[in-house]
């Protein structure tokens, strides 16, 4: 391996510092004994205990998880369907309009997405609550899923689906039994992306939420306006831990399948 030049070492240090310093400080202060966030008074885990006794935070966390699971699941189904249509159906009337609409939320400012959804819900008289947040998150996460899935579908060999049809499968069976298993990794990463997007969305959620449906980001944001408490540091640390574990697991799984497959392929070549 090449040795690090000074330039590389500096870039790496700066990169890590900018990315992780704030988080490291936050994690350290979550174990602070003192009530004052900025004064270190010794190590303690008491704020974690406080956090788990705080019903408001727990409720908000539960709402957030419900919203994230539901909306990312809906978004994955809809986004995968949209990607399939866009990539495979060739040219049809209104294709450009459809693809434009799907990708619009990607470039639209969140404030506008949130506001327009709010106006829609008011317009059709939908009472705001968890359900409207789920709908809103589905709408904007779906376009991310469809981007991820369609980039996989572009390199998907169309003749596989045709072969399934040729062997007597209905179009739905061909998709379910052939296409879906093959593109599954892309669909799963689309789901994970939608899940994290929903987990940390503040703007759209605050436009579309209603009484009894306060998500964690909304709760944290309003709590911080009254002053940062060590409880919030503790909460953030837990979220960082969850996300880290998730990301590391996902990358380990995909790496291991890639390695196994490469090994199998080599074995096949040798046996020829």
């Amino acid at each position: 391996m090449k040795r690090f030049s000074w330039f590389n070492a500096t870039s790496l240090t700066l990169g890590f510092a900018f990315l992780y310093m704030p988080m490291i400080i936050l994690v350290i202060y979550s174990f602070n004994e003192s009530r004052l966030v900025t004064v270190w008074a010794g190590f303690s885990t008491k704020w974690y205990g406080e956090l788990f006794r705080n019903a408001e935070f727990l409720d908000a966390a539960w709402v957030t998880v419900q919203v994230a699971v539901l909306s990312s699941t809906f978004a994955t189904v809809l986004g995968t369907m949209a990607a399939h249509v866009l990539v495979n159906a060739g040219r049809f009337k209104g294709r450009t309009l459809f693809s434009g609409m799907i990708y619009a939320p990607l470039v639209m400012p969140e404030v506008i997405t949130g506001l327009s959804l709010l106006l829609l819900f008011i317009g059709i008289g939908l009472e705001r609550g968890i359900f409207t947040v789920v709908l809103a998150h589905t709408t904007f996460a779906m376009c991310y899923v469809s981007v991820v899935v369609s980039s996989r579908l572009v390199s998907f060999d169309r003749s596989l689906e045709e072969a399934a049809l040729d062997l007597g499968a209905t179009p739905w069976e061909a998709f379910r039994l052939v296409t879906l298993p093959i593109i599954a990794p892309a669909v799963i990463s689309g789901w994970l992306l939608a899940f994290t997007l929903s987990l940390d969305d503040l703007v759209i959620a605050s436009f579309t939420t209603g009484p009894g449906a306060t998500t964690l980001p909304i709760k944290v944001f309003s709590a911080v306006r009254l002053g940062v408490s060590p409880e919030i540091n503790a909460l953030s640390t837990i979220m960082i831990a969850i996300v880290t574990v998730g990301v590391v697991t996902a990358s380990l799984i995909s790496k291991r399948t890639a390695v196994a497959r490469a090994r199998e392929e080599q074995a096949a070549v040798r046996s020829e």
Binding site: L160, A163, L167, I182
Partner: peptide, 12 residues
Amino acid sequence: NMMFQSYALFPH
């Protein structure tokens, strides 16, 4: 039934 030019075997 058709045998495809690329064989189109289901890889999974």
